[in-house]
């Protein structure tokens, strides 16, 4: 195993982590401000990917497709927030889990009804295709590098918005004391709709970015959703900083685990058994990580209270 290969794998883990952060940021914000656990967040990711694929097919422009993913996912977010989600804020988590589970069913089969059962086509633009040369002789995918940079930029923007802007102050206030912020005369229901739409847009954006190198199909959101939950639980639910650290941890653990565990087992076993055992253990690694973190910090790494 060469150092170059190892660095490339670290970059891959970083890229995966940054995309997970886009998913997890919305989840953790919505929980922090509204106290809502939203299983249908994966559906918004899917909506973004489908909107991007349809737009790219119609216009041929990747930039327009990305904009469409933001707009449509935000729109879908506003729609379900107004129709369904806002009725759930005062309910217990059980009702929230079931209602958003129901939304997954509706979104998934509704999308299949609209777009059919086969995966859709979405590809990155030519100017992001191919590879770039990095220092130390590393050859890396241009698109993945762009994903890392875009993801980091979004993360910085999000931190800035929450720390410095008026809306960010209100969001922080809403996390700390829900009654007080209403008493201050802030239109609380508008704030809630905004936060939900922001989370939805980020999820949809992630869906479009990832859809370009994976497949755009019904059900694509749920595996990512579960990973995003693992991320926010590790990071501490409600904490943006926690979501960022958690996302990178999960991204790196998963990527390096898949890469290193079979190598490790090959030291002690014959190759094909080592590959199988290593792969089995790698598929459980992030859940072990989560169990480990919760053992020592039951409320995650950056618990707010």
């Amino acid at each position: 195993m060469s150092l170059v290969l190892f660095i490339e794998q670290v970059l891959n883990g970083l890229q995966f982590g940054v995309m997970l952060f886009l998913m997890a940021a919305g989840l953790t914000l919505v929980f922090g401000v509204m106290g809502l656990i939203n299983l249908a967040h994966g559906s918004l990711y899917m909506v973004g990917a489908f909107a991007a694929a349809a737009t790219a097919a119609a216009t041929g422009s990747f930039v327009l497709a990305l904009i469409a993913s933001l707009v449509f996912a935000a729109f879908a977010g506003v729609l379900i927030e107004v129709l369904v989600i806002r009725r759930l804020y005062e309910r217990d988590h059980l009702d929230q889990v079931l209602a958003t589970f129901a939304l997954i069913l509706i979104f998934s089969e509704g999308t299949r009804w609209l777009f059919g059962s086969f995966p859709l086509f979405l590809d990155k633009p030519d100017w992001l295709s191919g590879t770039v040369g990095l220092p130390f002789g590393i050859v890396y995918s241009r698109y993945r590098l762009a994903m890392i940079l875009v993801g980091l930029a979004v993360a910085v923007g999000l931190f800035w918005m929450i720390a410095k802007t008026r809306i960010g102050i209100r969001i922080r206030a809403g996390e700390n004391d829900r009654e007080m912020i209403a008493a201050l005369g802030v239109n609380i229901s508008l704030l809630h709709t905004f936060v939900f739409a922001l989370g939805a847009a980020l999820a949809g954006f992630a869906g479009a970015l990832i859809g370009a190198i994976q497949s755009v199909q019904v059900g694509m959101g749920e595996p990512v959703l579960i990973l995003a939950f693992v991320v926010i639980v590790i990071g501490g639910i409600g904490s943006i900083k926690g979501a960022f650290v958690g996302a990178l941890l999960v991204g790196l653990t998963d990527t390096l685990g898949r890469f290193l565990l079979p190598v490790l087992f090959r030291l002690a076993m014959e190759p094909s058994a080592a590959n199988a055992v290593g792969a089995s253990l790698a598929s459980m690694s992030i859940y072990l990580l989560m169990a480990g973190v919760l053992l020592f910090r039951p409320r995650g790494l950056f618990a707010s209270q």
Partner: peptide, 23 residues
């Protein structure tokens, strides 16, 4: 843990067994 953490950690344990059973 409690609350949402409890929901998620029970989910994670089941997922762990799911992947174990598959592989």
């Amino acid at each position: 843990t409690s609350g949402v953490y409890f929901i998620m950690i029970t989910l994670a344990f089941a997922q762990m067994l799911y992947y174990f059973a598959i592989s």
